[in-house]
């Protein structure tokens, strides 16, 4: 067990280092120059003052040293929790900007991932044994899972927001309010949260429901189910076994889907102008904000790795076969 988790941790650590390095590289390969951007923004007319200003900004952003030095500096700053200064929101530190956006993204992601997974599994399992449900859930599931996140988001915004006027279609809260822990603000934030959540939830839900339906049918045809049935076991017990065993591939699927779901959330945030990490990425790219982009990516990488690690642990807990594998030092 120790050996297994030791090895797993090592793999995760390696992934982290590679991801952080790529993360540092990608903005630097992007076309454009953030310092030039700052200079044009301040629209300096005197050409002589350009040179000292450029020097100043390059110093502020740490771009006045060779690349390898920048890379090392990046790591040492990172380990101290410092991710640099935002170009777009100069001179706000990136860490602060991200921390302000993170609650919105998490509030979208965690409920939509978990609820769609739980609900999709339940509905899929039900569909596997009720003909009428199967005939409705299956086509609906295929349509939903094939729908692009942002397109569904636009449809929902149009139908429930513009036509029916039930939900606001943009922002994380009304512009008239300031973020605070009051009932009024939270209620307002909830109405803004609902549509982006719904679009993420629906797309993921379709995929899980189809997967679960197929897995349950497969499990109910398995030898152990046939044997139990031949021994007169009530269907209830057989279904319980089938459900539990079908959950294992779904759990693996969840781990695989996490990255995709995060990406989907980013696009959805842009559709709804939701002030989460996706919105920040868009702004960071448009403003050549290396540091903000790095910071957001880093956060996503950490999130996906962490979630995968948790699923690894859960898998060991729920599937005895992985556990017996561990004793042999394999896996």
């Amino acid at each position: 067990m120790h050996r297994y988790f030791g090895r797993k941790s090592l793999i995760y650590l390696l992934t982290f280092i590679v991801a952080v390095t790529l993360n540092w590289l990608i903005p630097r390969f992007m076309p454009g120059d953030p310092v030039l951007r700052m200079l044009t923004r301040s629209s300096v007319s005197n050409p002589e003052s350009l040179a000292p200003m450029r020097e100043y900004y390059e110093n502020v952003f740490g771009l006045d040293v060779p690349l390898w030095q920048q890379y090392l500096n990046y790591w040492s700053e990172l380990l101290q929790g410092n991710m640099g200064i935002s170009v777009w929101l100069f001179p706000a530190p990136v860490t602060g900007v991200i921390l302000k956006a993170v609650p919105y993204t998490l509030a979208l992601l965690i409920p939509s991932i978990l609820l769609s997974w739980v609900a999709g599994n339940k509905v899929g399992a039900l569909a596997a044994r009720r003909k009428w449900l199967d005939n409705t859930v299956l086509p609906l599931g295929y349509v939903l899972t094939a729908t692009p996140y942002m397109w569904l988001g636009i449809l929902l915004a149009w139908s429930l927001g513009i036509v029916m006027g039930i939900f606001p279609i943009a922002g994380g809260y009304s512009f008239a309010l300031r973020p605070s822990f009051t009932v009024g603000f939270i209620a307002n934030a909830f109405t803004h949260w609902f549509l982006p959540f719904l679009s993420l939830f629906l797309v993921a839900f379709g995929g899980w429901a189809i997967g679960m339906r197929n897995l349950i049918i497969y499990e109910l045809e398995a030898d152990y189910a046939n044997y139990l049935e031949a021994l007169g076991t009530p269907r209830k017990l057989i279904r319980r076994y089938a459900f539990r065993n079908a959950m294992l591939p779904q759990l693996t699927g969840l781990a695989l889907q996490l990255g995709v779901l995060v990406a989907g959330a980013l696009v959805t945030e842009i559709v709804f102008a939701y002030p989460g990490l996706g919105y920040l990425i868009l702004q960071a790219i448009q403003n050549q904000d290396f540091f903000l982009l790095q910071g957001v990516f880093l956060f996503i990488v950490i999130g996906v790795l962490l979630a995968n690690f948790i699923i690894d642990i859960i898998y060991v807990l729920v599937d005895p076969r992985t556990r017996t594998g561990l004793q042999g030092g394999t896996a």
Partner: peptide, 14 residues
């Protein structure tokens, strides 16, 4: 009662 052909996989693996 029945002893099935597939006795090797007749028990719930989990």
């Amino acid at each position: 009662s029945l002893i099935p052909q597939y006795a090797m996989s007749a028990l719930n693996p989990t």
